[in-house]
Write a protein that binds this DNA or RNA. Structure first.
Lengths: 189, 189
DNA sequence: ATTGCTTTTTACCAAATGGTAAATGGCTTG
DNA sequence: CAAGCCATTTACCATTTGGTAAAAAGCAAT
């Protein structure tokens, strides 16, 4: 539980009463591998903080290929930002890559927290900013480099994920086929 | 001037006095093509709103190649977010691609605005969120598609830029060589 | 240990992209 | 108009990556 509070406290100060309010609203859910946290076409129900496990953002492109956009692991918030906030149907799936334990807040509870704790909307906006910036910094270099460099860069971004997620997801994250990634790993060894 | 106010008003309400404060702090600067708005290794001086012209974010990768990361055109804020806010040396260059007219705020003035107008920090955070989300939505699809699709997607993202910026910048934005882009354009015709 | 299932690696050839260099086209300046 | 400069296009071949298919390896259940 406290991991989440520590995370939030990086972005603003909360007193004990406010921490208690937050924790009182949090529910724990468990997802099995391949379960969806939220689905394209549906309005996201929850904002979550990952206690254990790995999730991925993914979607289907024009050609029907499944593309992995991003990974989220322990100690991070997982949420379809724009869509949760405005309660609009999502365009991405958020799927458990491993079994997951996630602390979640419903939209209603989250709004109540936002309305009760002065300054919470700013804290929240700053968390989102941080997450988006990190995502951007990880994702951008993947465009202008060759596949080998992209894979090395992935390993730097997500060192703990390497042996926990299928190669096919990594390949799609890197924008190459699984076969190419396999070949690249062979050459690196 | 009003374009900027309109932009801000999407994210929160300001009264006339607050609008006047903002405008009183804004200075207009002009950049010639290829001038830098901010430079890698230097602390960003300004936060700006582009009145006229196009700028690009770029950096040099390990191999010394110049990579264009993003374009900013009229009607948008241009700022090295994290770095301006925390006054840390930037890692990217922000360069004028065409002659530009930009409304700028110094860090000192911007802070004064933030401290004076209640709720302005939240407005600001929401603007940044919006810009980052847009950037992310434009940038992400570039990874998992072939070069032709990436170019088509670029044209959708920045329709007004096509005939205003050198092909080499677009190519680097798309992660391909100028020659490949030229070939792709030929095939599309 | 064996079976069946899934993931990963290989292999083969086709297609796309990179790298070097030269040709073309467009624009500015004298 | 010509000369010079820069951006863009082409051409050529080497390299990388994709697509299809099969083999190998890992893993779980019996």
């Amino acid at each position: 539980m406290h991991k989440m509070i520590d995370f939030i406290l990086q972005f603003g100060i909360l007193n004990q009463q406010q921490v208690d309010l937050l924790l009182s609203k949090a529910q724990t859910i468990e997802l099995k591998k391949e379960d969806y946290f939220s689905e394209a076409g549906k309005i996201p129900k929850y904002l979550g903080f990952v206690i254990e496990g790995v999730l991925r953002f993914c979607y289907y492109n024009n050609k029907g290929e499944e593309i992995t956009n991003y990974f989220i692991d322990e100690g991070n918030f997982v949420v379809d930002n724009q869509k949760f906030e405005s309660q609009i149907a999502a365009s991405d799936y958020i799927q458990a890559v491993t079994d997951c334990k996630i602390l979640v807040f419903s939209k209603k509870d989250w709004d109540e927290i936002s309305n009760t704790i002065i300054g919470f909307p700013l804290i929240q906006a700053n968390i989102v900013k941080k997450c988006l910036t990190t995502a951007m910094d990880r994702r951008s270099p993947l465009i202008s480099e060759d596949a080998t460099t992209r894979y090395l860069s992935f390993m730097e971004s997500f060192p703990s994920l390497l042996n926990r997620i299928p190669l096919s997801y990594v390949a799609s994250y890197l924008g190459i086929t699984q076969q190419s990634l396999s070949r690249i790993r062979k050459n690196i060894r």
